[in-house]
């Protein structure tokens, strides 16, 4: 993990399968996390939540004394802790129920250890971005908290739309983000017909972050598909 400060976050894992709990702990330990507690039931989980105050909770949906969805709702009455559902129920309705309740992510078993730790990392970064570092690019740095780009001695403020677009790209750094996803990030649902505006914004972002905006190295175009943000040293 790149973000050492996140490794001290407290993780609560709720599942009724002891073997699975053990495995998740070993996965997360391998990934550098240290503070972890497990619970096998709803009541146990609630108690740990109240006393230990975890920074993130991983919940199974089927528990012996209730279901994860109602556990989540009860947790929400006293804590805003981010929640990831990890469950064997892969139906779309379940997924939508989970996300609809306000869960931060939903993963279906079976899963790859890497995917789990990546997703936990994403949630933690998003939640605790107050502590997020300044993003290093090849020719500049982005300070998302202050919404500005630092290039050499100069500071360029980011507009709200530019900030939205860059955040979306940063959340998926190193991966292509489609034109449609970026439009959605900047203009909301059903964003049709904003392709040209998006291109204009991308151009202005490049002027701020790239050393040579006509030969971009950090914000790469993938023709017809989308854009990719390349972090420094990657």
């Amino acid at each position: 993990m790149d973000y050492d400060y996140l490794k001290y976050k407290k993780i609560l894992i709720v599942d009724d399968e002891a073997d699975l709990l053990e495995m998740v702990i070993s996965i997360l330990k391998q990934d550098g996390f240290n503070a972890m507690k497990t619970a096998g039931t709803v009541s146990e989980a609630l108690q740990i939540c109240k006393e230990w105050k975890p920074d993130i909770a991983i919940l199974d949906v089927m528990l012996p004394d209730g279901d994860g969805f109602s556990l989540f709702e009860r947790m929400r009455t006293f804590t805003e802790v981010p929640v990831l559902f990890l469950t064997a129920r892969g139906e779309n309705e379940d997924r939508l129920t989970g996300l609809g309740l306000g869960a931060d992510d939903y993963m279906v078993k079976p899963f790859l250890p890497k995917e789990l730790s990546l997703r936990i990392g994403i949630i933690l970064r998003r939640y605790y971005k107050g502590e997020s570092p300044i993003v290093q690019l090849a020719g500049s740095q982005i300070d998302f908290d202050r919404a500005e780009v630092i290039k050499g001695e100069e500071h360029f403020p980011l507009t709200a739309k530019e900030h939205d677009i860059l955040s979306a790209l940063y959340r998926n750094a190193g991966r292509i983000v489609t034109i449609d996803q970026l439009c959605e990030a900047a203009w909301g649902d059903n964003p049709y017909g904003y392709e040209n505006s998006l291109m204009a914004h991308i151009r202005r972002i490049r002027e701020k972050i790239e050393t040579n905006p006509s030969k971009p190295v950090s914000l790469i175009t993938v023709k017809g598909l989308g854009y990719k943000l390349v972090l420094a040293g990657k």
């Binding site: 073997d19 079976p110 899963f111 790859l112 250890p113």
Partner: peptide, 8 residues
């Protein structure tokens, strides 16, 4: 769940 363990 068992497959999770195998994969994990």
């Amino acid at each position: 769940t068992p497959l999770s363990m195998v994969m994990g």
